[in-house]
Design a binder for these strands. Structure first.
Length: 283
DNA sequence: CCGCGGGCCTGAGAGC
DNA sequence: TGCTCTCAGGCCCGCG
């Protein structure tokens, strides 16, 4: 579910509501998410004050005073919700329940359990087996056609697959890959390496794609992300970005590019649905 | 190293 | 109504 804009929406909400708060205790209601919880997970969490909220790609980084960081991934169906008062009745799949010193509850719910939580030393984040290998951050100020070209160089998969590869660009998922390729007028099927460089410079397509990725993601963040079914910010707000979709979920509908009379088509690439306009995304 | 296909889970919706 | 089937925003793993 959550791609970069949704995780950033969660990060901003938690930053406002939780920085400075202290974890009183935590409760685990299943053996693990994608992997079993660490043996010392609760001990390292309880009693810690939350000092900072960062994000890297689709990973939320919750910094704790004392030097640890909690790495959270929401998988396909994970949500974090803050409840102001009382325990009440837990819902199905409320796998991690954190009680703050002020009485608020921070609950991680994840029906499919594709998410993950891990506590590491903050100093080890850069060398972390996953975090340390992520590609460039597409909403960073220095992300441009040169950075993208370097990441795509030599890739022999389709550009759609390359964008979904977190080692190439961090944070792009199926929705925003489709949307960015449409905005840049690039066919999802073209060879990724073919739009890297030409005589040492980023190709014209690469020079369209890099800003397209960035502006799509920034617009989606500004809209609070995309709620398809179950995504919501910790305060319950849903994401408004789906009303801006130009291709995702629009199979059989008219292309929304002005002047284009194409019809959006759906097809499968590496087991994932791709939506594209065959008329304005021809090469 | 790279790319691909299967698997991991539950729930919603379509079709019968 | 209820059953079965397919599909979903992601990523890890083993294989070639």
């Amino acid at each position: 579910m959550p791609e970069l804009p949704e995780v950033e929406t969660v990060r901003r909400s938690l930053e406002t509501q939780c920085v400075g708060s202290v974890v009183l205790d935590a409760q685990l209601n299943c053996p693990g998410l994608r992997w079993p919880f660490q043996d010392d997970f609760l001990q390292r969490l309880e009693g810690c004050r939350i000092s900072k909220l960062d994000r890297r790609g689709k990973y939320l980084l919750v910094h704790l005073e004392g030097g640890d960081a909690l790495i959270v991934h929401l998988g396909m169906s994970g949500t974090i919700t803050i409840f102001d008062d009382g325990p009440g009745q837990l819902r199905p799949h409320d796998h991690v329940v954190i009680t703050m010193e002020d009485g608020r509850l921070l609950i991680y719910n994840d029906p499919r359990r594709f998410g993950s939580m891990e506590i590491v030393s903050a100093g080890d984040l850069e060398s972390h087996r996953v975090i340390g290998r992520l590609g460039p951050e597409p909403v960073a100020a220095d992300f441009d056609a040169f950075v993208l070209a370097t990441a795509l160089q030599g890739r022999r998969c389709s550009i759609k697959s390359a964008l979904l590869n977190q080692h190439v660009v961090a944070g792009v998922g199926n929705i925003y890959a489709c949307e960015a390729l449409h905005r840049a007028r690039i066919s999802p099927r073209v060879l990724a390496g073919s739009l890297a460089t030409s005589s040492g410079k980023p190709t014209p397509r690469c020079r369209r794609l890099a800003p397209a990725i960035k502006s799509i993601l920034l617009s989606a963040i500004a809209a609070g992300g995309s709620t398809l079914k179950d995504f919501a910010a910790p305060d319950g707000a849903v994401g408004a970005y789906p009303s801006s979709f130009r291709v995702y979920g629009r199979d059989g509908l008219r292309c929304r590019r002005s002047g284009c009379s194409g019809v959006i088509r759906i097809f499968t690439q590496q087991g994932r649905s791709t939506f594209a306009c065959p008329r304005c995304q021809r090469s």
